[in-house]
Design a protein around this nucleic acid. Structure first.
Length: 589
DNA sequence: GCCGTTTTCGGCCCGACTGTTTTCAGTCG
């Protein structure tokens, strides 16, 4: 059983225990354990197999959870979970997805009315049976009826690019409101997560009503969920939720810190504050004995400082190691967009891109890049008019010619995104690949194959001396296609053995490798290339999403190969500017 | 269920808003 499955089981335990009204700290313990397991860079089974190691050394894992891990790895099942499942009607979990319905209300409705499905719940509301329950009323019943549709489409999260678009629209809409003195977008959007569950807006203003009235006029607003003195939440056209808070100027930093989260980060920050005799809320920091007397709160910097911490980049606020780093001011030097000097994954009109090589090169130069690789598809990707050997060699002749006329300080690399065929071999012969400056290998077909088959295909590509990197290594499309089955541990080991690079595909549709996988890859010392996979000039601009993802995975400039000068990169992959790979074979280890 | 520079027991982050209540529980973030 892999770590993800164990983590899923702990999450389900937490959900079921919560439904049963268990101690909230016990529930949180399962969630914390799940998070720790999910983010481990080694397999739990490997750690358990090593007698000199102990799972309990990882934070959040104690005697009980360590035992449960052992049972899961050995038997693939957890008796306590089976028992909980058997004794908890499945409809309860579904009911809690209705906004405003939590464990208590769900339990009560299920028990008193014998509800077995959401459809039965809908009927009970229509029959006005729900409003008769103790603690319920007409308004609650109406809210449940309205929320049933939302529950069906729950788990909706926006990709980061779509969230960015919504943020821009909100900014444009709100910026005309003169009552707004200051505005910032917080939450998981500010932390740069790959998908966003809701948008949080923070505003400083003396006129709360004016701000909220303007917010209420947002063109795609569907409904107002709540509106109080300082807080307002709306739902927009695609059921997505946007929260707005109006805070005083002197609390802006504390509020920004609080609403940026993550929840786990905030729990850690507040826990630290308590140990120091202080308490933190969204208005500021105070001593426990005089909670009304704020010590600070105007900026995030002063909030962290009073707790003995350096300011923490939002991308790092996930309740992992960031407080330890902030305490000692020993942060990794995170890669930045300005560090990027090359882009090694892009397409042109030769395959399925919409701009020519010349246009892509000019656009890359305009963005300050020093080198790019043209990596059109190989022939297997017939839908995309993939290149066979003859067309590819012809393209490379053009590249050679263009490079002689280009100004110094910019170079196009002869590249290819070569398919790893269903049966295993690469889509182009070695003698062709040997003439490339840069070879990406990737899986596009046969994604339903078994874990062994797909892993073998990728391991085969890594063993090929002409391949430099594996592109989008898990093949996922966020929100629409799960990753294919692949043994990434084996891929990481092979990448190390063959000195290969792995891609972080910066497209917001992919962001592949994921943050957790990047952390694991970096832990193995594997260099990462951040590629845009651009299919047009505009596609080059998705580099920023890749950078954010890399920063969340704590990658430094040194770990990202397209921050390196071209000479260093080519030396690393075993080529020189003037000679072919055949003359300079890559070392085998 | 986890954890420890006061602690192996007794804590565990904190506030806004709503609806159903006559002072607060439930939900959410």
């Amino acid at each position: 059983m892999d770590n993800g499955s164990i983590a899923d089981i702990f999450d389900e335990m937490a959900e079921l225990l919560e439904l049963r009204g268990e101690n909230q700290f016990r529930v949180r313990a399962y969630r914390n354990g799940s998070k720790t397991i999910r983010e481990l860079t080694e397999q739990v089974s490997d750690i358990l197999a090593d007698k000199s190691r102990d799972l309990r050394t990882f934070s959040g894992i104690g005697d009980t959870l360590a035992d449960k891990c052992k049972v899961l790895v050995e038997t693939g099942k957890l008796p306590q979970l089976e028992e909980l499942r058997a004794n908890t009607p499945a409809v309860l979990v579904k009911m809690t997805r209705i906004p405003g319905v939590g464990a208590k209300k769900a339990m009560l409705m299920q028990k008193e009315l014998g509800i077995q499905s959401l459809e039965e719940l809908r009927q009970a509301c229509l029959d006005q049976k729900v409003r008769a329950l103790k603690g319920f009323g007409a308004k609650t019943e109406e809210a449940i009826l309205a929320g049933l549709d939302i529950a069906e489409s729950a788990a909706l999260r926006l990709r980061i690019d779509r969230a960015e678009h919504l943020v821009q629209r909100l900014k444009n809409h709100l910026s005309s409101c003169t009552a707004i003195q200051k505005m910032e977008f917080a939450g998981s959007y500010r932390r740069g997560k790959e998908t966003i569950g809701d948008i949080d807006i923070l505003i400083v203003s003396d006129d709360h009503d004016a701000v909220m009235n303007r917010f209420q006029e947002f063109p795609v607003l569907i409904s107002v969920i709540v509106r109080g003195d300082t807080k307002m939440s709306i739902r927009v056209d695609n059921q997505f939720q946007v929260d707005l808070r109006v805070v005083p100027q002197e609390s802006f930093g504390a509020a920004l810190q609080y609403f940026t989260g993550s929840k786990e980060h905030n729990v850690a920050v507040r826990g630290r504050a308590r140990k120091l005799g202080m308490t933190v809320n969204e208005y500021g920091v105070a001593k426990i004995e005089s909670p009304d007397q704020l010590l600070c709160g105007r900026t995030e910097e002063e909030l962290y400082e009073i707790l003995g911490l350096k300011w923490i980049a939002p991308e790092l606020r996930e309740g992992r190691h960031e407080l330890h780093w902030a305490e000692k001011d020993e942060f990794p030097e995170l890669v930045q967009l300005g560090d990027i000097v090359g882009d090694l994954h892009m397409h042109t009109t030769e395959s399925d891109g919409s701009n020519s090589m010349d246009e892509m090169a000019a656009a890359a130069r305009a963005r300050g890049l020093q080198y790019i690789a043209i990596t059109d598809h190989s022939k297997r990707v017939s839908m995309a008019r993939g290149l066979d050997a003859a067309r590819l060699l012809a393209q490379w002749e053009v590249v050679d010619r263009v490079n002689t006329t280009r100004p110094a300080g910019f170079r196009i690399l002869k590249g290819i995104e070569c398919d790893i065929l269903e049966a295993g071999p690469l889509d182009l012969p070695d003698e062709v690949l040997a003439q490339a400056d840069w070879v990406l290998a990737s899986v596009h077909y046969g994604q339903k194959q078994s874990k062994e088959q797909i892993t073998d295909r990728i391991l085969g590509a890594l063993a090929n001396p002409h391949v430099d990197a594996i592109a989008h290594p898990t093949g996922r499309l966020l929100g629409s296609r799960p990753p294919y089955e692949v043994d990434l541990q084996a891929v990481f080991q092979a990448a190390v053995a063959h000195r290969k690079i792995l891609e972080l595909n910066a497209s917001p549709y992919r962001l592949d490798l994921s943050e957790t996988h990047l952390i694991a890859a970096a832990g193995h010392g594997i260099p990462i290339v951040i590629g845009t996979d651009a299919h047009s000039i505009e596609g080059l601009d998705v580099m920023r999403f890749g950078i954010t993802q890399a920063r969340r995975a704590c990658l430094t400039k040194q770990q990202v190969v397209n921050t390196w000068p071209l000479d260093k990169l080519l030396e690393w992959v075993g080529r020189s500017l003037s000679t072919r790979r055949a003359c300079h074979p890559k070392p085998s280890t």
